[in-house]
Simulated scan of single mutants.
Amino acid sequence: MRLLRHRPAPPAPASPGDVLARAEAVHVRLGSRPVLHGVSVTVRAGEVLALVGPNGAGKSTLLSALAADLPVAGGTVRIHGRPAAEWSAPELALRRAVLPQSAALAFPFTVEEVVRMGRAPHAVSPAEDDLAVAEAMAAAEVTGFAVRPFSALSGGERARVALARVLAQRAPLLLLDEPTAALDLRHQELVLRLCRERARAGDAVVVVLHDLGLAAAYAHRVAILRAGRIAADGPPAEVFSERLLSEVYDQPVEVLSHPRTGAVLVTPKRNL
Rank of each mutant, 00 (worst) to 15 (best):
P100D: 03
A104W: 13
R186T: 14
A219T: 08
V35E: 01
L175C: 03
D184R: 11
P268D: 10
P126W: 08
G74M: 09
F150L: 11
L99P: 00
A182Y: 06
R198N: 00
P11L: 10
A204F: 09
R226G: 01
R170E: 13
R5Y: 12
A12D: 12
A73H: 12
P268E: 09
S102Q: 15
D250K: 12
E247T: 13
A168G: 05
R170Q: 15
L244W: 02
R148I: 05
V98M: 03
V191L: 07
R243D: 14
S125D: 14
H122P: 02
L63S: 01
V207N: 03
I79M: 07
A25M: 08
G228F: 04
L63P: 04
A164L: 05
A231N: 12
V28C: 05
L105Q: 05
L183M: 06
G118F: 06
F145Y: 13
L256N: 10
M1Q: 13
F240T: 01
L30M: 10
V205N: 10
C195R: 00
L256R: 14
A168W: 01
R270A: 15
L63V: 06
L176F: 08
A159M: 10
P108W: 06
R78C: 14
G213I: 09
R260A: 14
R158Y: 09
L265D: 02
L3I: 13
V77I: 15
A134S: 12
H220F: 09
R226C: 10
L192K: 02
A89V: 12
V239S: 08
A164D: 00
P10W: 08
G228Y: 03
P126S: 11
R198A: 09
A181W: 04
A227E: 15
P71E: 01
A21G: 08
L175D: 01
S257A: 14
A136Y: 02
P149G: 04
V124E: 15
I230G: 06
P121V: 03
A25S: 15
E113V: 01
A14N: 02
P259S: 10
G118P: 06
T76F: 08
V48L: 05
A104V: 15
A106I: 02
P8E: 13
N55C: 09
P11N: 11
A123T: 07
R270W: 14
S15F: 04
E135W: 10
A232H: 09
A232Q: 10
A168L: 07
R82H: 14
E247Y: 09
P71M: 04
A50P: 05
A132I: 08
L49E: 06
A21F: 06
L212T: 02
A171D: 00
L20Y: 04
A23K: 03
A204T: 10
V41H: 02
E47S: 12
R116E: 09
R243P: 02
K269V: 15
P100E: 01
E178L: 08
S151A: 15
D233A: 05
E112F: 03
A85Y: 11
V114L: 09
S246H: 02
Y218V: 04
A168Y: 01
L20D: 00
H6V: 14
A25N: 14
A73Q: 12
L173V: 11
V35Q: 01
A134H: 11
A152H: 15
V207C: 11
S154R: 06
